[in-house]
Simulated assay, not measured.
Amino acid sequence: MHLTRILLTKPKASEVLTAYLKQCNEPPWTSYFVKLKDVKNDQPGRSHFNWTLDTGTNYHILRTACFPYMKYHCTKRPYQDLRLEDIFFRVLKVMNLGLPMLFYGLAAIKLITHQEEVFLKGKKSVFIYFLYKEDKGSQY
Rank of each mutant, 00 (worst) to 15 (best):
H60D: 08
P68K: 04
T113W: 06
A65E: 10
P68F: 05
K124S: 14
E134S: 04
P11I: 01
Q139F: 14
L99D: 05
L36F: 07
S14M: 01
V39L: 12
E85T: 08
N58S: 14
Q115V: 03
E117C: 09
L106R: 07
V91N: 10
T64H: 11
D86G: 01
W51E: 08
M70C: 09
W29E: 02
G45S: 08
F33R: 00
S47R: 10
P68S: 05
I61A: 01
L36I: 14
P78R: 13
G56A: 11
Q43V: 07
L92H: 04
F88C: 03
M70G: 02
L7K: 09
K37Q: 14
G56L: 08
Q43C: 10
V94I: 12
R46E: 14
K12L: 09
W29I: 02
L17Y: 00
Y69V: 05
A107H: 11
K76W: 00
R77Y: 08
E26T: 10
T9N: 12
V39A: 03
R83D: 15
N25A: 13
L3F: 13
N96M: 10
K136E: 11
F103I: 15
F33S: 02
Y132W: 12
E26N: 08
A107N: 15
S31H: 12
C66Q: 15
G137M: 04
L53P: 02
L131G: 14
T18E: 14
Y132M: 07
T4L: 14
A65Q: 13
P27M: 03
S125N: 04
L17E: 00
K121V: 05
Y140H: 09
L7P: 01
H73Y: 11
